[in-house]
């Protein structure tokens, strides 16, 4: 019985490695095969590292990306925080995380009184279908969060 379990484990591992190699084959294979991808827990840890023990409130910050990204190498992403960007209603920073990449950190942005609006856009790499999370730090210390699921087509088969 135990022997079956062991061989089962081996099968599972080789399957995972094969799956990893397959997904890495897309485009220029930005992520090497066999590297563990970040998961929810790792992402939560990364968020905690930035905002500490403050509570995440859902809302006010939106993160935008394509519903389906055919090329995981350059996925256009935009974000915006509802804020007047004046007086006490200021956004200090926005941090972007990805739940399914080798590392959850994507980018951090800081704003100023001359920003006018807490919005921005950039392009990112996505290893697989996953959630993107934007965390907005306000000047008053409150922290808001927005989420977006982006489906990534592997191998560019358009399906």
């Amino acid at each position: 019985m135990s022997q079956t379990e062991v061989s089962g484990g081996v099968h599972r591992r080789s399957f995972l490695i094969a799956a990893g190699a397959g997904s890495a084959a897309f485009a220029a294979a930005q992520f090497a095969p066999g590297i563990a991808l970040a998961d929810k827990a790792l992402t939560e840890q990364a968020i905690k590292k930035v905002i500490g023990d403050r509570k995440l409130i859902e809302g006010r910050v939106s993160i935008d990306g394509p519903e389906i990204a055919e090329n995981g190498n350059t996925v256009p992403v935009g974000f915006e925080v509802e804020s007047k960007m004046s007086g006490g209603d200021m956004v200090k920073a926005v941090h972007v995380f990805a739940e399914g990449n080798p590392r959850p950190e994507v980018a951090n942005f800081w704003f100023s009184a001359d920003s006018g609006a807490a919005r921005g856009a950039f392009r990112m790499r996505m290893a697989k279908t996953q959630n993107l999370i934007a965390v907005a730090e306000m000047a008053d210390g409150k922290v808001y969060m927005g989420k977006r699921l982006v489906k990534v087509t592997i191998g560019g088969c358009g399906g």
């Binding site: 190498n73 350059t74 996925v75 960007m85 990805a98 990449n101 080798p102 590392r103 950190e105 994507v106 980018a107 951090n108 942005f109 800081w110 704003f111 100023s112 001359d114 920003s115 006018g116 609006a117 807490a118 919005r119 921005g120 856009a121 950039f122 392009r123 990112m124 790499r125 996505m126």
Partner: peptide, 28 residues
């Protein structure tokens, strides 16, 4: 803007090659 930071970003390896960044300003 005139020596004063208006926008700043820290990028990680998840940002695509040839990084494109857009942001807003409202200078006085």
């Amino acid at each position: 803007i005139d020596g004063k930071t208006v926008f700043k970003a820290a990028l990680h390896p998840a940002v695509s090659s040839n990084p494109y960044i857009s942001f807003a300003i409202s200078p006085k």
